[in-house]
Design a protein around this nucleic acid. Sequence first.
DNA 1: GCTATTTGTTCAACGATTGAATTATTTGCT
DNA 2: AGCAAATAATTCAATCGTTGAACAAATAGC
Lengths: 412, 412
Amino acid sequence: MSPTHAPAGAVRQGSLRELNLALVLGRIAAADRPPSRADLATATGLTRATVSAVVEDLLAGRLVDEADPAPRAGAGRPARGLVLADQGPAGLGLEVNVDYLTVCVVDFAGQVRHRTVYRADLRPVAPADALARLVELAAQARADAARQGLTLAGAALAVPGLVDDTGLVRLAPNLGWHDVAVPALLAEHPALTEQVPGVPALVVDNEANLAALGELHSRPPGPASFLHISGEVGIGAGIVLDGALFRGVRGWSGEIGHLPVHPQGRPCRCGGRGCLEQYAGQEAIVAAAGLARAELPADTATARLAQLADAGDADALRALHDAGTALGVAVAGVVNLLDLDTVVLGGGYAPLAPWLCPPVLAEIAGRVLTAAWSPVTVRPSTLGAEAAAVGAAGSVVRRIVAQPAGWLTRTG
Amino acid sequence: MSPTHAPAGAVRQGSLRELNLALVLGRIAAADRPPSRADLATATGLTRATVSAVVEDLLAGRLVDEADPAPRAGAGRPARGLVLADQGPAGLGLEVNVDYLTVCVVDFAGQVRHRTVYRADLRPVAPADALARLVELAAQARADAARQGLTLAGAALAVPGLVDDTGLVRLAPNLGWHDVAVPALLAEHPALTEQVPGVPALVVDNEANLAALGELHSRPPGPASFLHISGEVGIGAGIVLDGALFRGVRGWSGEIGHLPVHPQGRPCRCGGRGCLEQYAGQEAIVAAAGLARAELPADTATARLAQLADAGDADALRALHDAGTALGVAVAGVVNLLDLDTVVLGGGYAPLAPWLCPPVLAEIAGRVLTAAWSPVTVRPSTLGAEAAAVGAAGSVVRRIVAQPAGWLTRTG
DNA sequence: GCTATTTGTTCAACGATTGAATTATTTGCT
DNA sequence: AGCAAATAATTCAATCGTTGAACAAATAGC
């Protein structure tokens, strides 16, 4: 339906090679099995000669490696498979959340090569101190990456809140942050990564957005368009449309937690009434299940809920069913609006998916006009609890996959 | 935020010129005043030599004309302005709706050059007969276009319902259509337009989508991202994101009429409960205002409502306020989800905007988390009642603007 | 009438892709 | 073993579009 869009800028002579580098590299990244040059030629529509030239550049820049010949039936010279290099540029993923800090490193091929989780209640900690601790963990990660032959090409930080495009955290309510200028605070510390043309040193983004990107680039890759819902204390969503994250006009899309599900219902801290968060947020579910919130650290609440539900606890089952119904009302609205066919439950919702999915699907079936013609899939996230950090690190290497020219000219 | 995306396909040698033709032509189309070749060079980043070569192609293909020299201060050789040609390819826009058929022709520069409206209640008419009547009107339009030196390069048909990508109308509830294969039915008639490479002979799409496209390409152009709500008997929305219409996975996005605003409220014909359509649809407003529906043809209902409200009729004012509040609840949800800063009220809502906007804005202010930082604009559509038909015709010429190579090789 | 200034064109050079021919390497068959 | 068929990958002259500098065109200001 949507035609090929021209690049925004001018198409210069050199852009040709730049674009074809990205095209070929993207195919290699998306392929199930290591493709040969001939495979790439037929897949992209380029000639074999051009593919060979492009691949030579990629090999010289160490973004791609030749793999063992893939077994193939029939006669003919065996192909040499091409895979993303596991020794090249890597991404540093950072996450600040209510009760933990996470740092991870993802290599160019998408493998997690380093992971650190530091558990602590971050709410009483000043933003500068939390970031300082994060920098320490990042320095260790960088050293570990260097030991493995990896070069950190950029970093991305996931925050549970609203971030503008300068990296300013306007509001992270559950964390208690307000107008925190992350890049300025980090500038006082030694650089986390190397400087690579085309790769910003640090990107700050919403955790729901980065978790959705993680899902998109996981193996097997997510569909081109889907909604990824991160159910934590707040409820955020990452919206992936046609293979790209949609961030909204100001970068604040995905506030699904404040979709009204009972317009005259419980007041919400956002000022509205009956927001989804009041019925399907972590605190609401825990309260409905009869668990005193103070007894449980936030990070074990969902585990405890899953345990109770698994054991057949009636209160827990009812709480999950009600939460799933509220979530389903909101999700049905989104599906009606955007015509998506896949909804991924991530974050705290992932372990609760067995109990949440049925009521969500029921609401979809009842409310979505087009559900009769084609079904909507609702499934848990394939990534674990630290999806946002992994997605953050992955977004760094993905940017190089999308624009390899910057990295190649760097190594010249 | 979102980086330049590479074209989906291979970038061949010839693609270079193809892409730059589109780039330069797009700049000419978007410019306020006729730009010179030098303006285009600085705006696009291409060299003046390349721009001259590209413009020469466009002039030879009669997609662009040279305009009178625009007045300019200072010394130097006067520039020759470039404008979209008004004699080149034109688009044919068609619309089938509950109580009228419309045909219009829009030239390459975006001007409406022909318009016919045929008023009749189409609900009792068989789809094939309605389309046959439409073809008659289209033939007259084609003859009129030919008299004006225009060539119809393609056609687009707006339908108030769900359309798949083959042109099959799966469901148009208010029209009573069900699984109508429009292209097959039209194939029996003489061709409406010429065959142009890269321009499909006929596109069938939802009226809300095409009306949104019309708004996007109107003068002055709409913002890059906005929501266009068509309030007719049903309520549909066209979603424009980053300058492109988002159609959803199957092309069925925009069903905002079935967003739940009172989850346990009135049952809706979609099977759900409390859908927006039950509170802000045309029939709901008319009923709430105490007007018997049978008294009024559908096309005068909104005019009558506006008249009453203007006169201070209490029932009408209350009905509009309630409808606006319901609409605001749904719109607030969409704005929270997509982070849009502009909402356009079109179709039947446009004349009612003075009374609908205040409650919509009130709900947005109360429910949208980010409303405090940056305001959301809610305004009526700039196009008139036949926005969908004009948008349909405009979408044809816009496709040529985006991909001029097809047209040029045709005349080549 | 002269100069500065800006617009637009011309032209040799360059870079990337192209397509055909060539080389490389294996399977299957006799 | 040996040979033909088949597939993979490379080489190379030709081609196409962009590039950048030089040049021609046209005007305002002095």
